[in-house]
Design a protein around this nucleic acid. Structure first.
Length: 294
DNA sequence: CAACCGTGGTT
DNA sequence: TAACCAAGGTT
């Protein structure tokens, strides 16, 4: 007897009723719009992404439009969304799509996986949400929902792409469009109800069948990952340096960058890593700038 | 697989 | 207030 928890009919009905009206979910949004949203949403909250996404769609409505922009313009438009390498990879993906895919975002998972910045999650999210394909879409929300509702555990264990995909695949309905809708519903449930902290189980549409609920909502017993520091790390220093370059109208002197961090060794190392990553450039006369603006 | 890669709001 | 959290990907 197959478990009825996370039943498609229940979840999709809940999603129809409760799902957020996000612009990249509108029917007229292209595959390109969906892809841009998915990249921006990697590790970044919806509220911060939405205005930037609107701006990008107006400015760069097709992959080829973005491909024609300079990296400097792309990084400035990315603003403070964080992890600016995502912007660079999206820029590169746009160029590849324009050149090799007729300026249309691919719908095939393996083709998407071959593009820079697109991994197991994003490839399937685009296939499902932009093209209505049946594909297991596994993000942190889905992992948490499945851990609780199916396995009765408060948190998902350590991620394993292969296992997680197979796990979610068994839950997906057969028909493509329905499976895609179901995937969106699963993510939305994790984002709105089955949240990491203080899940609102009273609002949950699958509460009666939830294994975690039935077990009395036991606390997580498995291994915990050490929390990532930020203050004092290279990540912070790189962010400070890049913020100076973004805020400048053109190339700046090294002295200007020296002001943001007092430890010379770390600062120099970070500036060098930005150059290596293609997030910054040094001009012929020794100034520093965003790539492509000199 | 673990470490690394930004940023800002919430608890 | 330090820790946690937010639609991950790459090395």
């Amino acid at each position: 007897m197959k478990s009825t928890v996370l039943a498609p009919t229940t979840l999709i009905a809940w999603f129809d009723r409760t799902g957020r009206d996000l612009p990249w979910r509108h029917p007229e949004t292209t595959g390109w719009g969906v892809l841009v949203s998915e990249i921006m949403l990697q590790q970044t909250p919806v509220v911060r992404v939405q205005p930037i996404w609107q701006d990008w769609m107006q400015r760069w409505p097709k992959p080829s439009s973005l491909a024609e922009a300079t990296a400097a313009d792309v990084l400035r438009a990315w603003g403070k969304l964080g992890y600016p390498r995502r912007a660079l990879r999206l820029h590169a993906a746009a160029a590849a799509i324009a050149k090799n895919h007729g300026d249309v975002v691919p719908s095939d998972v393996d083709t998407l996986l071959a593009l820079p910045g697109i991994g197991a999650y994003t490839a399937r999210a685009v296939a499902a949400f932009a093209y209505g394909r049946r594909a297991p879409v596994v993000d942190t929300n889905v992992r948490r929902v499945v851990a609780r509702a199916v396995h009765g555990s408060a948190e998902a264990g350590p991620p394993s792409t292969t296992r997680d995909l197979a796990d979610v695949d068994t839950l997906l309905p057969e028909e493509d469009a329905r499976a895609a809708r179901y995937s969106a519903a699963l993510m939305e449930l994790g984002a709105l109800v089955c949240t990491a902290r203080n899940p609102t189980c009273v609002d949950c549409p699958v509460r009666v069948d939830c294994a975690w609920q039935q077990a009395g909502k036991p606390a997580y017993a498995g291994p915990t990952r050490p929390t990532q520091r930020f203050a004092g790390t290279d990540r912070q220093v790189r962010g400070l340096l890049l913020d100076v370059l973004r805020g400048a109208s053109g190339p700046v002197e090294r002295a200007k960058l020296d002001l943001v961090w007092q430890h010379d060794g770390q600062r120099d190392r970070c500036l060098d890593s930005l150059l290596v990553d293609g997030l910054a450039e040094q001009t012929e006369d020794g100034l520093f700038a965003l790539p492509g603006e000199s």
